[in-house]
Design a protein around this nucleic acid. Structure first.
Lengths: 135, 135
DNA sequence: GCCGGTTTTGATAATAATTATCATTATAAT
DNA sequence: ATTATAATGATAATTATTATCAAAACCGGC
């Protein structure tokens, strides 16, 4: 993989965002820095960066992938009301180990060829819960 | 929701398949029974049936939804090699309760607004593992 | 059985996200 | 600087799915 100005801009955008941006959002932000950048370049690089493990691809199920620059172990919840992606971090390695054991036990999995998906949960986010209570 | 021959055919197809068929596959099978059926009818009914809880929609992340006629509590694994959807059933209610507790504990979730996604795991299916060992 | 209202159908156009193509340009190694 | 390789940007193509809408099917009452 060669250096390119475009790729670095895209990586920076994804890394410095905490909103799990879509390709389109990344494109808009990238144009602010490099107006001539093409949408194909954005897609191409998001794919390469994800492939390379520099960023994470999040499939929300709504037809548009989102991307996450935080590659440390964490998980995502999709809000069933607004579709927002919420980060959830495990409370510690021990808890995580406990979860894996529970998964293996619950489903009778013996080997290590299985990993827990990064988008693990669906629920109602706090913002939507707040709005609900007001009505 | 009214009776219609098409809807029943589609429901039967999804129910009697254990291959988590895509809309396209359902369309092919439906045409064997009712050659004039339209693709839009298939999509429309898969959506309505899923909305209604008669079938399950599985988002595999590869851009084409799959459908599952078994609505009892079970989970899915996506094979990271071949993309196949593997059914995984919990070993019992107690195990499932254990898993939920582990999830809540691991992620500091207190309320009940959260549910574990039906597509929970990614891994290598047995068929792909078998092929691998032979090489 | 026929009528009127409602739902569903099927053909097809439209949408929307993403990928492929390809000539041109940028980057890296010698 | 030269040259090989990789990346870019414009745009066409692809693909799954949804929207549109006139025609047909269905259902309850008469």
């Amino acid at each position: 993989m060669k250096y390119s100005r475009q790729r670095n801009i895209i990586l920076d955008i994804v890394r410095s965002s905490d909103a799990h941006p879509t390709a389109d959002t990344v494109y808009d932000l990238a144009r602010q820095e490099l107006p001539g950048i093409g949408i194909a370049t954005v897609y191409r690089n998001l794919n390469m960066l994800a492939e390379n493990g520099d960023i994470l691809r999040i499939n929300t199920g709504d037809g548009r992938d989102r991307f996450d620059g935080r590659t440390g172990e964490h998980y995502h919840m999709i809000c069933s009301r607004c579709g927002e992606v919420i980060d959830i971090y495990p409370t510690g390695d021990a808890a995580m180990e406990e979860l894996r054991r529970a998964v293996n036990l619950t489903f009778g999995i013996k080997d290590d060829n299985v990993q827990i998906n990064t988008t693990l949960l669906t629920g109602v986010c706090n913002r939507c819960l707040g709005k609900e209570k007001k009505n």
